[in-house]
Amino acid sequence: MSVIFSVIKGNWKAQIGLGIVSLFLIMALAAPLLSPYEPQRRVGMPHQPPSSEHWLGTTRMGHDVFTQLVHGTRTSLAVGFGAGLIVAALGTLIGISAGYFGGKIDEVLTFFTNVVLVIPNLPLLLVLAAFIGQASPWVIMIIIGFTSWSWGARVIRAQTMALREREFVVASELIGEPKWRIMFVELLPNLISIVGINFIGSVIYAVLTEATIEFLGLGDPTSVSWGIQLYNAQNSAALYVGAWWEIMAPCLAIGLLGAGLALLNFAVDEMANPRLRTFQVSKKMKRLMLQPNRVKEVQA
């Protein structure tokens, strides 16, 4: 734990990322306290610009945009983290199994993974969502979770195969540890950074994809989420009638949350791969090391 704190302390990307994500978490938890209105109730005139009464204006239906935004944060975070968990769990399970067992199991799993990887994800999700009808955020979460694990599985398999022949794994096998224990107690802790990166990456992907599916009109228009806000704004031609606040608010929220999570991911990546960690001090050292002729200049 103290290691994590010390890394966060010296890493501005981790700090900003964590700050943004915490902000959204607080917004989601405190949604009813932040706004006096109900998200789905007509509380003002249609298309009112931002004012002290309606911080981010109102929609064509007279809904309060700020209220919808904070309540939508709940949906987006829940869908994002839920789908991210499914993706990370499936990817890890399939990746470790393929990498550890090898042979026929690996062949079958890898083939399966590659097929899922190569079929474009969004068109597939659109077909699924179209047949389900008006997909609620939870349904969207599940279908994203079960169609997007292949990238993680592939990366984790490769890393498992690299670890598989190491002494500690061979030693555990010789002691006679059960296979599941080797996979999840011996191997998994060594993969934790990749699993973490995969998880955060999947959360970003899920948040964006949910918004995209709903924006395209395959979501349930009565639910409260950022994607539905965008869909309603697009449908009521918000930009064309000058109601920029209706469409800008969810847009910026999605962008900001995505940016925060991406910064967090960048920081985790740097923790795991010290070569990518580029501090000012080491830069000077590296340049000296990499450019022998410069050493002379410095010495002279």
């Binding site: 970003i204 964006l208 918004a211 995209t212 924006f215 965008l230 930009l239 920029w244 469409i247 800008m248 847009c251 910026l252 999605i254 962008g255 995505g258 940016a259 999570l261 991406a262 910064l263 991911n265 960048f266």
Partner: peptide, 18 residues
């Protein structure tokens, strides 16, 4: 670049259009 990558096409498009 990493942050840009995580901002979806839908958001960038709408921002650019606006």
């Amino acid at each position: 670049a990493l942050v840009m990558q995580s901002i979806p096409a839908v958001v960038l498009s709408i921002l650019a259009l606006f």
